[in-house]
Nucleic acid binder design. Structure first.
Length: 264
DNA sequence: AATTCGGGGTT
DNA sequence: AACCCAGAATT
Protein backbone atom coordinates (compact mmCIF):
# COMPACT_ATOMS: atom_id res chain seq x y z
CA UNK A 1 0.00 0.00 0.00
CA UNK A 2 2.99 2.25 0.50
CA UNK A 3 3.85 1.66 -3.15
CA UNK A 4 0.56 3.08 -4.39
CA UNK A 5 1.57 5.99 -6.58
CA UNK A 6 4.84 6.27 -4.68
CA UNK A 7 8.32 5.40 -6.00
CA UNK A 8 10.01 2.32 -4.61
CA UNK A 9 13.11 4.34 -3.79
CA UNK A 10 11.11 6.47 -1.40
CA UNK A 11 9.15 3.57 0.07
CA UNK A 12 12.15 1.33 0.75
CA UNK A 13 13.56 3.12 3.83
CA UNK A 14 10.12 3.90 5.25
CA UNK A 15 9.08 0.28 4.89
CA UNK A 16 11.75 -1.02 7.26
CA UNK A 17 11.09 1.67 9.82
CA UNK A 18 7.36 1.05 9.71
CA UNK A 19 7.67 -2.71 10.12
CA UNK A 20 10.10 -2.31 12.99
CA UNK A 21 7.37 -0.39 14.81
CA UNK A 22 4.41 -2.49 13.64
CA UNK A 23 5.87 -5.95 12.99
CA UNK A 24 2.57 -7.81 12.48
CA UNK A 25 -1.13 -7.42 11.84
CA UNK A 26 -2.13 -7.56 15.49
CA UNK A 27 0.35 -4.89 16.55
CA UNK A 28 -0.81 -2.57 13.80
CA UNK A 29 -4.48 -3.24 14.48
CA UNK A 30 -4.19 -2.33 18.17
CA UNK A 31 -1.86 0.65 17.86
CA UNK A 32 -3.13 4.20 18.43
CA UNK A 33 -4.02 5.68 15.05
CA UNK A 34 -1.83 8.65 15.92
CA UNK A 35 1.28 6.49 15.93
CA UNK A 36 0.41 4.96 12.59
CA UNK A 37 -0.05 8.39 11.03
CA UNK A 38 3.21 9.48 12.64
CA UNK A 39 5.06 6.58 11.08
CA UNK A 40 3.64 7.56 7.72
CA UNK A 41 5.52 10.86 7.65
CA UNK A 42 7.08 11.68 4.32
CA UNK A 43 5.10 9.11 2.36
CA UNK A 44 2.15 11.29 1.43
CA UNK A 45 -1.42 10.25 0.65
CA UNK A 46 -1.92 10.08 4.41
CA UNK A 47 -5.30 8.44 4.04
CA UNK A 48 -3.40 5.28 3.19
CA UNK A 49 -2.11 5.12 6.77
CA UNK A 50 -5.67 5.06 8.09
CA UNK A 51 -6.80 2.59 5.47
CA UNK A 52 -3.86 0.31 6.19
CA UNK A 53 -4.65 0.17 9.89
CA UNK A 54 -8.35 -0.37 9.21
CA UNK A 55 -7.40 -3.20 6.89
CA UNK A 56 -5.29 -4.69 9.67
CA UNK A 57 -8.27 -4.41 12.03
CA UNK A 58 -10.56 -6.08 9.49
CA UNK A 59 -8.00 -8.86 9.02
CA UNK A 60 -7.83 -9.34 12.79
CA UNK A 61 -11.59 -9.38 13.21
CA UNK A 62 -12.74 -11.22 10.10
CA UNK A 63 -9.83 -13.44 9.10
CA UNK A 64 -8.22 -14.36 12.41
CA UNK A 65 -5.22 -12.16 11.80
CA UNK A 66 -4.22 -13.88 8.57
CA UNK A 67 -4.11 -11.79 5.41
CA UNK A 68 -6.57 -13.41 2.99
CA UNK A 69 -5.34 -14.84 -0.29
CA UNK A 70 -8.66 -14.54 -2.07
CA UNK A 71 -8.89 -11.69 -4.57
CA UNK A 72 -12.41 -10.69 -3.60
CA UNK A 73 -11.61 -10.65 0.11
CA UNK A 74 -8.48 -8.57 -0.47
CA UNK A 75 -10.29 -6.21 -2.80
CA UNK A 76 -12.89 -5.52 -0.11
CA UNK A 77 -10.31 -4.18 2.36
CA UNK A 78 -10.11 -0.38 2.64
CA UNK A 79 -7.39 1.10 0.46
CA UNK A 80 -6.97 -2.13 -1.48
CA UNK A 81 -7.86 -1.84 -5.14
CA UNK A 82 -7.26 -4.09 -8.11
CA UNK A 83 -3.51 -3.60 -8.13
CA UNK A 84 -2.86 -4.19 -4.42
CA UNK A 85 -5.24 -7.16 -4.26
CA UNK A 86 -3.59 -8.92 -7.17
CA UNK A 87 -0.09 -7.99 -5.97
CA UNK A 88 -0.70 -9.59 -2.57
CA UNK A 89 -2.42 -12.62 -4.10
CA UNK A 90 0.49 -13.17 -6.47
CA UNK A 91 3.58 -12.04 -4.55
CA UNK A 92 2.53 -13.26 -1.10
CA UNK A 93 0.52 -16.36 -2.05
CA UNK A 94 1.79 -17.22 -5.53
CA UNK A 95 -1.70 -17.08 -7.01
CA UNK A 96 -1.72 -17.21 -10.80
CA UNK A 97 -3.25 -13.79 -11.44
CA UNK A 98 -2.03 -10.90 -13.59
CA UNK A 99 -0.74 -7.81 -11.78
CA UNK A 100 -1.28 -4.53 -13.59
CA UNK A 101 0.47 -1.39 -12.44
CA UNK A 102 1.45 1.69 -14.44
CA UNK A 103 4.59 -0.05 -15.72
CA UNK A 104 2.80 -3.19 -16.88
CA UNK A 105 0.17 -1.09 -18.58
CA UNK A 106 2.82 0.85 -20.48
CA UNK A 107 4.80 -2.24 -21.48
CA UNK A 108 1.75 -4.13 -22.70
CA UNK A 109 0.33 -1.07 -24.43
CA UNK A 110 3.52 -0.59 -26.39
CA UNK A 111 4.14 -4.25 -27.04
CA UNK A 112 0.60 -5.15 -28.11
CA UNK A 113 -0.64 -2.04 -29.86
CA UNK A 114 1.72 0.93 -29.75
CA UNK A 115 -0.72 3.39 -31.33
CA UNK A 116 -2.18 4.56 -28.04
CA UNK A 117 -2.57 3.32 -24.51
CA UNK A 118 -4.71 0.29 -23.76
CA UNK A 119 -7.68 0.84 -21.49
CA UNK A 120 -7.47 -0.77 -18.07
CA UNK A 121 -9.88 -3.49 -19.13
CA UNK A 122 -7.90 -4.15 -22.29
CA UNK A 123 -4.70 -4.23 -20.30
CA UNK A 124 -6.13 -6.77 -17.88
CA UNK A 125 -7.29 -8.92 -20.78
CA UNK A 126 -3.87 -8.85 -22.48
CA UNK A 127 -2.09 -9.39 -19.17
CA UNK A 128 -4.17 -12.48 -18.44
CA UNK A 129 -3.60 -13.77 -21.95
CA UNK A 130 0.17 -13.32 -21.79
CA UNK A 131 0.56 -14.60 -18.24
CA UNK A 132 3.25 -17.28 -18.17
CA UNK A 133 1.49 -20.44 -16.92
CA UNK A 134 2.66 -21.42 -13.46
CA UNK A 135 5.10 -18.52 -13.34
CA UNK A 136 2.87 -15.61 -12.47
CA UNK A 137 5.21 -14.39 -9.76
CA UNK A 138 8.27 -14.18 -11.97
CA UNK A 139 6.32 -12.98 -14.99
CA UNK A 140 4.61 -10.12 -13.17
CA UNK A 141 7.79 -9.12 -11.43
CA UNK A 142 9.65 -9.17 -14.73
CA UNK A 143 7.03 -7.08 -16.52
CA UNK A 144 7.18 -4.40 -13.84
CA UNK A 145 10.96 -4.37 -13.88
CA UNK A 146 11.07 -4.12 -17.65
CA UNK A 147 8.69 -1.17 -17.41
CA UNK A 148 10.71 0.53 -14.70
CA UNK A 149 14.20 0.02 -16.13
CA UNK A 150 13.90 -0.62 -19.89
CA UNK A 151 10.50 0.27 -21.32
CA UNK A 152 10.61 3.61 -19.52
CA UNK A 153 8.16 6.36 -20.18
CA UNK A 154 10.78 8.87 -21.27
CA UNK A 155 13.58 6.98 -22.93
CA UNK A 156 12.82 3.34 -23.80
CA UNK A 157 15.97 1.25 -24.12
CA UNK A 158 14.60 -1.02 -26.82
CA UNK A 159 17.99 -2.51 -27.69
CA UNK A 160 18.08 -4.20 -24.28
CA UNK A 161 14.43 -5.21 -24.19
CA UNK A 162 13.51 -8.89 -24.03
CA UNK A 163 10.33 -8.12 -26.00
CA UNK A 164 12.03 -6.32 -28.87
CA UNK A 165 11.49 -9.17 -31.36
CA UNK A 166 7.71 -8.90 -31.28
CA UNK A 167 7.02 -5.41 -29.91
CA UNK A 168 4.69 -3.26 -32.01
CA UNK A 169 6.14 -0.07 -30.63
CA UNK A 170 9.62 -1.13 -31.59
CA UNK A 171 8.44 -2.29 -35.03
CA UNK A 172 6.83 1.03 -35.91
CA UNK A 173 9.76 3.14 -34.86
CA UNK A 174 9.86 5.06 -31.65
CA UNK A 175 8.42 8.33 -32.82
CA UNK A 176 6.08 7.30 -35.63
CA UNK A 177 2.81 6.87 -33.78
CA UNK A 178 1.27 9.10 -31.14
CA UNK A 179 2.80 8.77 -27.72
CA UNK A 180 1.32 5.81 -25.85
CA UNK A 181 0.24 7.81 -22.85
CA UNK A 182 -0.52 11.33 -21.71
CA UNK A 183 -1.75 12.38 -18.34
CA UNK A 184 -4.00 15.32 -17.66
CA UNK A 185 -2.08 18.42 -16.77
CA UNK A 186 -1.12 18.66 -13.16
CA UNK A 187 -2.33 21.67 -11.24
CA UNK A 188 0.29 23.66 -9.32
CA UNK A 189 1.11 22.34 -5.87
CA UNK A 190 2.25 25.62 -4.36
CA UNK A 191 -0.62 27.21 -2.49
CA UNK A 192 -2.97 24.31 -3.19
CA UNK A 193 -5.34 22.86 -0.62
CA UNK A 194 -3.39 19.67 -1.10
CA UNK A 195 -0.29 21.41 0.21
CA UNK A 196 -2.25 22.85 3.13
CA UNK A 197 -3.67 19.47 4.06
CA UNK A 198 -0.17 18.04 4.13
CA UNK A 199 1.01 20.96 6.23
CA UNK A 200 -1.79 20.44 8.74
CA UNK A 201 -0.98 16.77 9.23
CA UNK A 202 2.73 17.53 9.42
CA UNK A 203 2.21 20.06 12.19
CA UNK A 204 -0.08 17.73 14.12
CA UNK A 205 2.62 15.09 13.89
CA UNK A 206 5.08 17.53 15.42
CA UNK A 207 2.73 18.32 18.30
CA UNK A 208 2.00 14.68 19.03
CA UNK A 209 -0.99 13.97 21.23
CA UNK A 210 -1.65 17.39 22.65
CA UNK A 211 -3.35 18.84 19.65
CA UNK A 212 -3.39 22.43 18.46
CA UNK A 213 -5.85 25.29 18.58
CA UNK A 214 -7.51 26.42 15.40
CA UNK A 215 -5.83 29.81 15.58
CA UNK A 216 -2.34 28.37 15.95
CA UNK A 217 -2.98 25.96 13.12
CA UNK A 218 -4.16 28.80 10.91
CA UNK A 219 -1.00 30.72 11.73
CA UNK A 220 1.19 27.79 10.81
CA UNK A 221 -0.50 27.05 7.53
CA UNK A 222 -1.32 30.56 6.38
CA UNK A 223 0.89 32.98 8.41
CA UNK A 224 -0.54 36.25 7.11
CA UNK A 225 -4.07 34.96 7.29
CA UNK A 226 -7.47 36.45 7.91
CA UNK A 227 -9.71 36.32 10.96
CA UNK A 228 -12.09 34.10 9.04
CA UNK A 229 -11.20 30.49 9.67
CA UNK A 230 -13.88 28.80 7.57
CA UNK A 231 -11.31 27.86 4.93
CA UNK A 232 -9.41 25.95 7.60
CA UNK A 233 -12.51 24.29 9.03
CA UNK A 234 -13.45 23.02 5.60
CA UNK A 235 -10.05 21.41 5.14
CA UNK A 236 -10.28 19.90 8.62
CA UNK A 237 -13.73 18.46 7.99
CA UNK A 238 -12.34 16.68 4.96
CA UNK A 239 -9.46 15.31 7.02
CA UNK A 240 -11.91 14.30 9.73
CA UNK A 241 -14.01 12.32 7.27
CA UNK A 242 -10.89 10.42 6.27
CA UNK A 243 -10.07 9.61 9.89
CA UNK A 244 -6.92 11.72 9.91
CA UNK A 245 -7.90 14.27 12.58
CA UNK A 246 -10.26 14.77 15.50
CA UNK A 247 -11.91 18.11 16.30
CA UNK A 248 -13.59 19.46 19.39
CA UNK A 249 -17.09 20.89 18.85
CA UNK A 250 -15.65 24.36 19.20
CA UNK A 251 -13.20 23.78 16.41
CA UNK A 252 -15.94 22.45 14.16
CA UNK A 253 -17.90 25.69 14.44
CA UNK A 254 -14.81 27.76 13.77
CA UNK A 255 -13.86 28.89 17.26
CA UNK A 256 -10.24 30.03 17.37
CA UNK A 257 -9.71 28.11 20.62
CA UNK A 258 -11.12 24.88 19.27
CA UNK A 259 -8.70 21.97 19.38
CA UNK A 260 -7.54 19.74 16.56
CA UNK A 261 -5.48 16.60 17.05
CA UNK A 262 -4.54 13.34 15.47
CA UNK A 263 -6.97 10.51 16.35
CA UNK A 264 -5.99 8.67 19.49
C1' DA B 1 -14.69 9.41 -17.12
C1' DA B 2 -12.73 12.96 -14.25
C1' DT B 3 -10.89 14.64 -9.76
C1' DT B 4 -8.75 14.42 -5.61
C1' DC B 5 -5.19 13.01 -2.68
C1' DG B 6 1.50 14.30 -0.78
C1' DG B 7 5.63 15.05 -1.59
C1' DG B 8 10.25 14.19 -3.06
C1' DG B 9 13.16 13.34 -6.96
C1' DT B 10 14.07 14.31 -11.82
C1' DT B 11 14.24 17.00 -15.95
C1' DA C 1 7.96 24.78 -13.04
C1' DA C 2 6.22 20.73 -14.68
C1' DC C 3 6.32 15.96 -14.66
C1' DC C 4 6.62 11.43 -12.59
C1' DC C 5 5.33 7.74 -9.36
C1' DA C 6 4.53 -0.73 -8.14
C1' DG C 7 -3.40 3.51 -7.11
C1' DA C 8 -7.79 4.02 -4.70
C1' DA C 9 -11.94 6.38 -3.49
C1' DT C 10 -15.27 9.52 -4.66
C1' DT C 11 -18.29 12.08 -7.64
Amino acid sequence: MMLQQTQTGRVAPAYGTFLAKFPDVRTLAHAPAMEVIQAWRGLGYNRRAVDLQRSAQAIEHEYGGVVPSDLKALRALPGVGDYSASAVACFAYDRQVPVVDVNVRRVLSRAARASDELSLDETRRVAAEWLAPGEAYRWNQALMDVGAMICRIDKPLCAQCPLKATCEYRARGLNKGPRPERRPKQSPFEGSSRQKRGGIIDHLRDTAGEGVSLSVLAKVIHPNGHKDLTWLVELLEGLEREGLVEMTPGARRGSARGIVRLPG
